[in-house]
Amino acid sequence: MNVNRRGFIKLTAAGLAASGMGALGFGHVGEALASSVRAFKLAAAKETRNTCTYCSVACGILIYSMGDRAKNAHSNIIHIEGDPDHPVNRGTLCPKGSALLDIVHAPTRLTAPRYRAAGAGEFKEVSWDFALDRIARLMKDDRDKNFIAKNKEGVTVNRWTSVGMLAASASSSETAFLTWKVARSLGMVVFDNQARV
């Protein structure tokens, strides 16, 4: 809220008037109090172009975040609206796209790796190293035990069917390509994404 200097003075003066003068019958002084409109909240916000994360219309969006990317300012996202230049949505957004702010700042956003031991009753926070080391260990042990290099007829098949993976259909194509490389280099075939639903 950047109350400009002139506005600041007007407010304090009015305050005085209301209390002292008002009692003496100068009521109409109050009319001058009417302050102007709510200040425009994006006045100095940083604008970033992005694409809505939900459906395949892939509406263009403008993300407004606090600060001007100065080092000490954590660029918190404060508003998201449609990109008027985008040829498909032309600035419009559906009820989901218009509420993207609430998914970015959802209280149920995950913020730390969590691990649930076998039979345990709740999650406990762990470090990334612990989680990824443990996952790599579990995957290697299972792969070494169940990897099928050759099938019954002796044909080299190099497949690993005892660990499966589901890929996200909202992740970027770059993520998808890297995920494909890693999964297939391990021989995974139980490997699908939301296109299957």
């Binding site: 209301a18 209390s19 008002g22 009692a23 019958g25 100068f26 009521g27 109050g30």
Partner: peptide
């Protein structure tokens, strides 16, 4: 009445 609204100052607004 607007003319008398100043009376509201007697009650604190």
């Amino acid at each position: 009445h607007p003319l008398l609204f100043w009376l509201s100052n007697l009650f604190g607004g």
